[in-house]
Amino acid sequence: MVSLLSLQKDFFESYQGRSSFANYLKGEGPSSKHRLEIYYNNITFALRKALAISYPLTWKLIGEDCANGAAYAFIQAGTFLPIGGTLDKWSSAFPDFLDHFSPTQNLAYLSDFARLEWCQHVAYSLEDKRPLTVHDFKDVAPESYAKLCLKLHPTVQLFSSPYPLDQVMAVVKGEVDTVELDNRKANALIVRPCQSVNIHWLSEAEFTFFLFIHQGYPLIKVLEKMENTAIQLHEILSFCLQKGLFLEYTFTSEQEEH
């Protein structure tokens, strides 16, 4: 009697090219090989399609042929197969894989661009939460502003790269023709306050401000830490409220401040 567990393990091994599965099948000869190939092709096709859905801009950046080649290599590596019955959260490891994918090594920024795109993909389906607006602060007394502890919207992700990803993004979107690979890094804040995922490109000082906020520091501490940095608090808070970057606020006690 054939054990179902052994049969399924053997199929998995055969998909990875490590064993034959033909002994389980009715009929012999080349037909068995073709029958199995249909399943193997279906699996690989579904995984490739899932990657293309998660990384559409990366596909556009390097072209479909090259991107599909990277996808097949990623899938054939075998170590990145999905663990759950949905493919939406699969493939977070694809950017790391691109770091070592030799055909695209000349595109130094590619893996970071894919990481940025993964952040967008993740933000797309996180839980919906209403962001704070200026009206939510109408009862906050001005003398309490310093004690404000602001919580970023749960879809906010902060991503920094040594490459000018804003330029790369502009090329992909057809806004400019070429990427100027100067030595300027890119700082991005990704957020989905409502139904669209937005990327905000930040200065070094703005990015640091958000890192401190993300770490849970009250506003006064953030300002202390950034005292030598050119940042206009009024402007950045106004930007945050317009763009829906905060979820809630609390007040820190004086004890906590110290």
């Binding site: 009697m1 054939v2 179902l4 567990l5 049969l7 399924q8 393990k9 199929f11 998995f12 998909y15 389980y24 399943y39 279906n42 699996i43 579904a46 995984l47 899932a50 197969l81 999905p82 663990i83 759950g84 019955g85 493919l87």
Partner: peptide, 22 residues
């Protein structure tokens, strides 16, 4: 069908043997 074994998911509708045990 089946598509998952030992924590790995193969995204296709794979056939099962039609036996009493299964």
């Amino acid at each position: 069908s089946w598509s998952k074994i030992q924590g790995r998911y193969l995204p296709d509708l794979l056939p099962i043997p039609y036996t009493k045990e299964v």
